[in-house]
Design a protein around this nucleic acid. Sequence first.
DNA 1: GACAGATAGTTAGGCGCCATATCATAAGAC
DNA 2: GTCTTATGATATGGCGCCTAACTATCTGTC
Lengths: 177, 177
Amino acid sequence: MEILEQKHLALIDEAERRGDGPTANLRLCFEVIALAAAIDRDCAARLAPHNLSEGKFVLLFLLHQLPDGLSPHELADRAGVTRATVTGLLDGLERDGFLARQQSKDDRRKVLVRLSPKGEDAARELFDTHTRWIASLFAGFDESDRQTLSTLIQRAWRNTDGGRKAVQTKAASEITQ
Amino acid sequence: MEILEQKHLALIDEAERRGDGPTANLRLCFEVIALAAAIDRDCAARLAPHNLSEGKFVLLFLLHQLPDGLSPHELADRAGVTRATVTGLLDGLERDGFLARQQSKDDRRKVLVRLSPKGEDAARELFDTHTRWIASLFAGFDESDRQTLSTLIQRAWRNTDGGRKAVQTKAASEITQ
DNA sequence: GACAGATAGTTAGGCGCCATATCATAAGAC
DNA sequence: GTCTTATGATATGGCGCCTAACTATCTGTC
């Protein structure tokens, strides 16, 4: 029952062959990545039958129950992707009838995106099954397990570039206060 | 110091708004994904200056110190990607002078891929810095931390589709024995 | 020795994501 | 009122990955 991916096994082999110190950290890193990749694959597999990807699903639920719609720009900000990416995702969603684009009245540069009834249905239904599925991944975890896992992940995260920057930003803002 | 991505924060908000039971598991899942994504980003940022991606780097180190080279098929198997993907990666690597393709003598369907001196240099040098960097992500983890994290990750992994299949396969093979 | 089926590599087309460049419109400075 | 600058959205082209289809070659069978 090997959790790691092929390429990572090969990398660990090579590191061991070179006697490159402790490969335990390598293995740990690849286990994290393997879990995330497995979750991504499952997510994609669950959404594909509906002609949706993870990115499209996010837009769908961001637009859910917003009769006034949102602009592509707002969608990009809230989804954390570029505006260009949103344009591509909207193209697909509009083609498949989940939503419609409409020119804004007050700002003629702007576009308003609104879900169609089909989109509203999909958002409502998929959101529930989706969150239930995600929660089920950690079935059997009690509060202590969750706390432990979360703490260890955050410790590693602080060693990434993004994590380091966040720590610095936080420190700077605390001094400023 | 928020570790989660924008879209996941929005998803958790919505789940809480709906009172959809425990959102703690959601948060945990997204933390795993955020760590993996941060690592991926760092990896890409470190390789980009050399005109390499993670996929290309894997091919490079698979070919390292193999004067007889490998075929695209073998590379695909060992890297865990499709042959078509390997073709694309090889195109880029060949264009950038890291390797050369050469017709095999004994099987004229086959192609042999060999690193150039530039490719050999890059593989040797990058492999070391790369593994050191990965190990540094878990700096400060002692054996007990590693064991704990690994166990928790594997427990979650067994709840993914891939994990379930692996468990079944293992059980079946044990019965057969 | 011809022929079916396996195998090797590539091509074509798609998806999701990105960065960069382009074009329309809006808002503020003077 | 014009002119710069900011802000919309999109187009273009790239990357890594996929599947499916194609061509060339090899292999085993009759």
